[in-house]
Structures are given as structure tokens and as C-alpha cells.
Design a protein around this nucleic acid. Structure first.
Lengths: 139, 139
DNA sequence: ATATATGCAAAGACTTTGCTATCGA
DNA sequence: TCGATAGCAAAGTCTTTGCATATAT
């Protein structure tokens, strides 16, 4: 029973990965689709989703499922946190420890759960939206 | 221009709120719908969604948008964190500080963002699933 | 050669919305 | 009374999937 690792490097997969790694914006599948389409006009959104799912499963990229919004993808698989702009949805990286602390672990174990991971998402207002805040603070 | 705060306490709204507050399971809209339906058989799912959205907007309840799964709702509006079972999706409360620390704030401000909120979601395996873990650890 | 991947389109899951009748303050 | 709300059903958004064809190894 050898590892089922027959993952082919197709043109589509390569271009999707290249475009994702070129970005630091944690794009949605659709945003990535639009970019990839400039190089491969006939690619389908389904292919983009399928490849993102597959590469995520193999640890080549990361799928971000944050804050109930649509999925976003990250070419950087190193452990890190994110900060999301509550006005425009933009996501940036944050260099903060990701480990579960002793204090956390105690609170978790009090619930009977076995602690696995700590996910932190910071919410804020990005520099661009901060500038606009003068004119419109609603929403 | 007086505050547009004409929120009526309809039967549907009251029952939805009662059922939500009775639970500590952070139900989905659909789960709540099924419960409410036992008391109000003709209520529609749309009404449940609309009322949950409205009560959330007025701060009467909380909407949880965690980990890319479907929305869940919380009758407890006090600031607290959650732990989600990665096997069954169940969500429990955690009593851990929610504030942004000095250390966090520095990292955030280095990105140019204005820090607003820190959301932490812990992932773990709930007591029920832990018991089952002996037989099946996949997935 | 052939198992894997693609493109297309349809289906799915979840949520929101338009419309008319009804209800609560 | 009369504007807010309900029920119903349709539409919307995002994601997944079935199938026949094409492709990488």
C-alpha cells in the first residue's frame, strides 16, 4: 500500500500556484480565477476550485476559512495569523505566535476538549480604509 | 430624525429568542428553525434568518461566523471565545480573555492596520468524539 | 496506455430577497 | 391605523460534482 500521491503537474495547476505565490493578498477562488484566466483563457472556475482544494490537501498551499466569508487561499504554508479589514475584507499577515499557551490549555481542558489548534483572527481597519474613514464611517 | 428603532416583539421573534437562549449549543439557523417549528409549525426559514440577522444587528444575540462553516448563533452576547470540535462541529464556550494585548497591538500596528478586535477560535476534539476516537481516527 | 485532470454545466448548500397579506403598538 | 413583519417561493452566492474528453507520465 504505497502513498496515493499521483499528483500531476498540469499547466493549470502550475499557473494557479504561480499566481497564488505571486500574491500576498490571500485571494478568493474567483479573484485567482480572473488572474489565471489572463494566462489560460479557457480554464474553468471548477478547475481552480479543484486544484486549490487538492493543493491545500497536500499542504502545498493553505485554505483560509475565516470569519464566515468566502474561502481565501494562501501560498505561504508557514504558521501565521491574519488580520482582516472589517471594511474591505482585505487580509494581511501577522507575525504572532500561534501556539496554544499553558493558560489556554487549562481553559480548554476544563471543557473536556482535547486541544488541537489555536486560530486567531484579528479584525481591524486597513491603511487604505483608514484614509477613507474621514468621509464615511458608517457600515 | 429619531432613532429607527421600531422593533416589534412578534410571536416568532420571541420564540426564536427563547429557544436560542434555552440552548448552549450555538445552533445553526436550520437547527433553530426545527426547534421553533415545534412551537410555531408555520414559521418559515426565511423568518428565522431575518430575525436572527435583526437581533444580531441590535446586539440582542451574536452571530458566529467561524472557520468557514455555516453561521451559528449565540444567545450570550458577553465577550467570550469558542472551541469547535473538528470532528462533529460542536461549539462550546471558553473563558479566556478576549482583549488585544500590547504585544498583539504592536504587531498589528506594524501592518498599518488599526486594531479593532481579536477573535480566537480554538479547535479541538470534544469529549463525545474523543470516546469514539478509539475506533476511528481518520477524517 | 491509462489513470488523472480538464471544461462545461448542472446541482448543492446555505442565505437573502421580493411580494402580498397580516399583525402589533 | 399603518408601518413593520410573516410566509412563501424565487433568486443569489459560493462551492462541489458528474460526465465526456484530453493530457501527463
Amino acid at each position: 500500500m504505497q502513498p496515493v500521491h499521483n499528483i500531476r503537474m498540469t499547466t493549470q495547476r502550475r499557473v494557479i500556484l504561480e499566481e497564488l505565490r505571486r500574491l500576498c493578498t490571500h485571494p478568493t477562488a474567483d479573484e485567482l480565477y480572473e488572474l489565471v484566466r489572463k494566462r489560460l483563457p479557457h480554464i474553468s472556475l471548477g478547475t481552480v476550485y479543484r486544484n486549490l482544494e487538492l493543493m491545500s490537501r497536500y499542504g502545498i498551499i493553505r485554505t483560509l476559512r475565516l470569519g464566515g466569508e468566502q474561502m481565501r487561499f494562501d501560498g505561504d504554508t508557514e504558521s501565521h495569523h491574519h488580520i482582516r479589514c472589517i471594511r474591505c475584507g482585505r487580509i494581511d499577515d501577522l507575525s504572532i505566535e500561534r501556539q496554544i499557551t499553558e493558560c489556554d490549555r487549562e481553559a480548554i481542558e476544563a471543557t473536556g476538549y482535547e486541544a488541537v489548534e489555536r486560530r486567531v483572527e484579528f479584525l481591524g481597519i486597513c491603511p487604505v480604509c483608514k484614509k477613507e474613514a474621514g468621509t464615511d464611517l458608517s457600515g
